[in-house]
């Protein structure tokens, strides 16, 4: 292949010029995201420590957080129901690297928590337990962030083990 320098050499006006290999062009765009009506219902219940799920009118599956549609039926979820603060870890990983702009101390345990009564896992952190002891099937409960209760999932600090025996794999096998 012809190198950039060789190409430049062929243009008399640019003879001897250093090729430009990098320009930094900062760009800033601002967006105001809106969560939509289903997520708004979910978020506004969080300051009251309420976990509002929604049920699909067709397949009766329960979604939390609700996202506005049952993704398999393509219809709006409208029936709301409140879920308990307890659930089961269906799978997890331990994150050992910090992502830019993500204000979480590493390592941390990122888990799918199947709240009791829900059919999809809630993405959450699991804490108050050595990470080597976190396991699939473990029973956990929400620990609320008392200082930062607001319309955000940050209202839940993390989930911690309840100490109950592990859940029967049949209870979550289809929803993991």
């Amino acid at each position: 292949m012809t190198t950039a320098a060789e190409l430049l050499a062929g243009i008399p006006e640019l003879a001897g010029a250093e090729p430009v290999t990098r320009v930094t062009i900062p760009a800033r765009l601002e967006y105001t995201h809106t969560p939509g009506s289903a997520q708004t219902r979910f978020l506004t219940a969080l300051p009251d420590k309420r976990l509002l799920a929604e049920r699909c009118p067709q397949c009766t599956r329960v979604y939390v957080p609700p996202r506005g549609a049952c993704p398999t039926c393509g219809v709006a979820t409208t029936e709301q129901l409140e879920l308990p603060h307890t659930g089961t870890v269906t799978t997890f990983c331990i994150v050992n690297i910090a992502a830019k702009g993500l204000n979480i101390e590493v390592p941390y345990c990122y888990a799918y928590v199947l709240l009791d009564g829900a059919h999809v896992g809630l993405h959450a952190r699991v804490g108050d337990v050595p990470y080597a002891d976190v396991r699939i099937g473990q029973r956990v409960e929400a620990v609320w962030n008392e200082e930062r209760l607001g319309p955000s999932l940050a209202s839940i600090s993390h989930f911690r083990p309840t100490g109950e025996p592990d859940a029967d794999p049949e209870s979550y096998r289809r929803w993991m």
Binding site: Q39, C93, A99, L102, I104, A124, L153
Partner: peptide, 19 residues
Amino acid sequence: FQQPLTAGAGGFFAPHVRA
């Protein structure tokens, strides 16, 4: 209003590898 927890694609797929 979404909680970023995954720290890139690896974090997203690691739980499924464990499963």
